[in-house]
């Protein structure tokens, strides 16, 4: 339990009503590293991210961000405190313009050093389309807006939920290039993916989740895809 960890999760259990999605999970993320969470559908990946964002029905255990327990805090307070999420399925506000979507990301965040110029630098296309409604964009463009919206909160911890879902490989490459740049700015990043190869390629550290429990973790270079795949499917 290194106290230097940006995010440290201890013995976490997450419940949705009667159903337990996460069992006794331990996990750490340091500043400036990418941690991948790998797992099949229903393994509990999204439940974990939602719990960090303060949106689980009930949790047991501790979620510490920069040493302080997040339990009981509102999502608004968590985001304002430096944690931002790129939700699964992009989840933009469709009738708002690109700029309005991004502005909401800025307003709810820490009002830190990431500004509009930075995200327009990462995604020049967004500047051109800033007056367009979000619903008029392609899937890839929407994902860029979703990522940019989270970045504008100037988070010190960024959570990305399945950002490559349904996108073309070249766009996925672009997105991950930018995620690497953000990491290099010292941000801690959690990436949730179903794509094992992609997850291992970008991560400094990975955790494999099966039925709400971690059954494998470590550094990508210390393992093989085959071993990870075995744990992914639980065989």
């Amino acid at each position: 339990m290194a106290s230097s960890a940006l995010l440290s999760i201890e013995n976490l259990s997450v419940f949705h009503g009667q159903f337990q999605a996460i069992h006794d999970l331990n996990l750490e993320v340091a500043a400036g590293e990418i941690v991948s969470i790998i797992g099949a559908n229903g393994a509990g990946k999204s439940s974990l991210l939602k719990a960090i964002m303060g949106r689980a029905d009930r949790i047991e255990g501790a979620i510490r961000f920069e040493g302080a327990d997040l339990a009981g805090r509102s999502t608004a307070a968590i985001v304002g405190g430096g944690v931002a999420l790129v939700p699964e399925g992009r989840r933009l506000f469709p009738s708002l313009t690109v700029e309005e979507n991004l502005n909401i990301g800025w307003e709810v965040g820490t009002r830190g050093d990431v500004g509009f110029e930075d995200v327009y630098g990462y995604f020049p296309m967004l500047r051109e389309r800033r007056r367009q409604k979000a619903r008029e964009l392609s899937g890839g463009q929407q994902q860029m807006v979703a990522l940019a919206r989270a970045l504008l909160a100037s988070p010190r911890l960024l959570l990305c939920d399945e950002i490559s879902l349904g996108l073309a490989p070249t766009i996925i490459n672009d997105l991950y290039e930018i995620i690497a740049k953000i990491r290099d700015r010292g941000v801690g990043i959690v990436v949730v993916e179903q794509d094992i190869a992609r997850s291992l390629a970008v991560a400094n550290h990975f955790y494999c989740l099966l039925e709400g429990r971690i059954n494998l973790s470590g550094r990508p270079q210390d393992t093989t895809r085959e071993i990870v795949a075995k744990h992914y499917f639980g065989v």
């Binding site: 999502t75 608004a76 968590i78 985001v79 931002a84 506000f93 708002l96 709810v108």
Partner: peptide, 23 residues
């Protein structure tokens, strides 16, 4: 206005609004 954009955001999708930290 900014509050107007927030109101429209919540009207669009309140679950997403909650998830990204809008009160």
């Amino acid at each position: 206005t900014r509050i107007g954009a927030r109101i429209r955001a919540v009207s669009d999708d309140v679950a997403t609004a909650d998830l990204v930290g809008l009160p």
